[in-house]
Nucleic acid binder design. Structure first.
Lengths: 217, 217
DNA sequence: CACGTATAAAATGTATACATTTTTAAAATT
DNA sequence: AATTTTAAAAATGTATACATTTTATACGTG
């Protein structure tokens, strides 16, 4: 289970970034992290590199990495890409979505509905489970992994504001509508609903980030 | 220059993958690579992980990585994503593209025209320089880096067939047309030309990959 | 003979130690 | 006083050594 050690570390650091438990905007010292997580620098380096490649960290000066500040332009880009790519993969998926898949997706929505005490991370995770169980039917690994990566990065922004949690809750009806359109094999309608769904979420988020940056000044 | 050591190794291994100098479809042993490139396993591991994250390598079984075989579906996905995302970033870029940028882009095209003896890697690199010097004017780092990453991955496919080199050459006229449309601030036309340009390249490549996989059977 | 189990070997993951580079601060020169 | 130089420190990159996990092989059992 040695590989899992690094895997746990990866998840832990990512969570700590998401929950703002690590300093933003300044260089992260390997030694410091090594002590904090009680592990040698080698796995730390591995994880830092991985997170850097995934966009959770950016280079800080000539050497080292740092946690980038939340940025409205980045958020807008992420949702913009999702808006274009997710309807695309859904189109490939729809012909392969049978009733079993519909059922599985419905179950995820029911879980979201039933559980009142979901943390924002849990909610985001269930949200992704719903979307991905549809997308994976497309059998498009490359397209899928790009979309999955964009989702992951959005997670950092979703975790930031409770307002986003409210949005997630109100958008549940969208999910049911999308599922209904898929069940009816109404591909164009499903794509349009999904595009609007993503676009709206993006707009809500960007509005918040802009408002916040105004407050800081 | 210790960091450059790993950087050199990264470029070298990537090139060796592109030129099929490493075994495809079987696990790459760290020890073997360590001896081949005359360096310890630590930087090897770093590079392997990085290449894995970028899509040049995939996991092979429970442990280790391997070079994935060229795959028509992956190529199609890459070009599909580019087809959607590159016109998008171009739209953001056009308002900021002044005559200096036009001139710079023109210079790249002239270099491609003038040099008869370009290797396919050099040609691909110049091709990317042309596109990226336009895209970077959009000031959209996140969108840009996703597109850059997709380009990189296409590099593996472009390097494979000389046929693709022929296509690159014939597509030079497209580049001039796109540049002309940008200069005239005819955004929609430029976007359409770019979309067709990418779509055609993708179709050519996919046709080849499919034909080849048929030949193998 | 097939199949599962145990054991040995190979490969990877991690820690420690060392080398190189980067950054910091102090000293010196203009 | 400001700027360049230089030396010490801090931080990162790499090598070696060790621990753990996989994988392969041989053995035993049904």
């Amino acid at each position: 289970m040695s590989k899992q050690q690094a895997q746990i570390l990866y998840n832990q650091i990512k969570l700590d970034i998401q929950e703002n438990k690590l300093p933003i905007g300044q260089a992260l010292k390997q030694e410091m992290l090594s002590q904090r997580y009680n592990i040698s620098r080698i796995p730390i380096r591995d994880v830092l590199q991985r997170l850097k490649n995934e966009g959770w960290l950016t280079t800080c000066g000539k050497r080292g990495v740092m946690i980038p500040m939340l940025n409205a332009t980045e958020a807008e880009d992420l949702y913009l890409m999702r808006k274009y790519l997710e309807p695309l993969i859904l189109e490939y998926a729809i012909p392969n979505i049978n009733q079993q898949v519909i059922g599985k997706a419905t179950d995820y929505l029911h879980i979201i509905d039933s559980q009142e005490e979901l943390s924002i991370e849990e909610h985001g995770e269930l949200n992704w489970q719903f979307h991905s169980c549809l997308y994976e039917q497309a059998n498009r690994p490359t397209l899928f992994s790009t979309i999955a990566s964009l989702h992951q990065l959005c997670g950092r922004y979703i975790g930031y504001h409770n307002q986003q949690l409210n949005y997630l809750k109100t958008s549940q009806q969208d999910h049911y509508n999308i599922l209904k359109a898929i069940e009816n094999k109404n591909t164009e309608h499903a794509k349009n609903l999904l595009e609007t769904h993503i676009s709206d979420a993006g707009k809500t988020l960007v509005r918040f980030l802009l408002a916040e940056s105004k407050n800081e000044n």
